[in-house]
Amino acid sequence: MREMSCPQVTIRELKQKLFAYDDVQIVDVREIDEYREGHIEGATLIPLGILPYRLEEVDRNKEVVLVCRSGNRSSQACELLRERGFYNVRSLQGGLSSWTA
Rank of each mutant, 00 (worst) to 15 (best):
R2S: 13
E3Q: 12
M4N: 11
M4R: 08
S5I: 09
C6L: 04
C6F: 03
C6W: 02
P7D: 08
Q8A: 11
Q8N: 12
V9F: 02
T10D: 12
T10P: 06
I11S: 06
I11D: 11
R12V: 15
L14C: 06
Q16N: 15
Q16A: 14
K17W: 14
L18S: 04
L18K: 07
Y21K: 15
D22R: 08
D23I: 01
V24T: 03
Q25M: 02
Q25L: 02
V27S: 01
V29C: 03
V29G: 01
R30P: 01
E31D: 15
D33W: 08
D33Q: 09
D33V: 08
E34N: 09
E34P: 02
Y35N: 03
Y35S: 02
G38L: 07
I40M: 07
I40Y: 04
G42E: 10
A43K: 06
A43S: 15
I46E: 04
I46R: 03
I46T: 06
L48A: 10
L51W: 01
P52Q: 08
R54H: 14
L55S: 03
E56M: 10
E56G: 03
E56C: 04
E56W: 10
E57D: 13
E57P: 01
E57F: 09
V58G: 05
D59N: 15
R60S: 13
K62C: 05
V64P: 00
V65W: 01
L66H: 00
L66N: 00
L66Y: 00
C68P: 00
C68K: 00
R69H: 11
G71F: 02
R73H: 10
S74M: 07
S75L: 05
S75R: 09
Q76T: 12
E79L: 08
E79T: 13
E79S: 14
L80M: 15
L80D: 07
R84V: 04
R84D: 06
Y87A: 04
V89S: 02
R90S: 11
R90W: 03
S91M: 01
Q93N: 12
G95D: 07
L96E: 04
L96A: 05
S97A: 11
A101T: 13
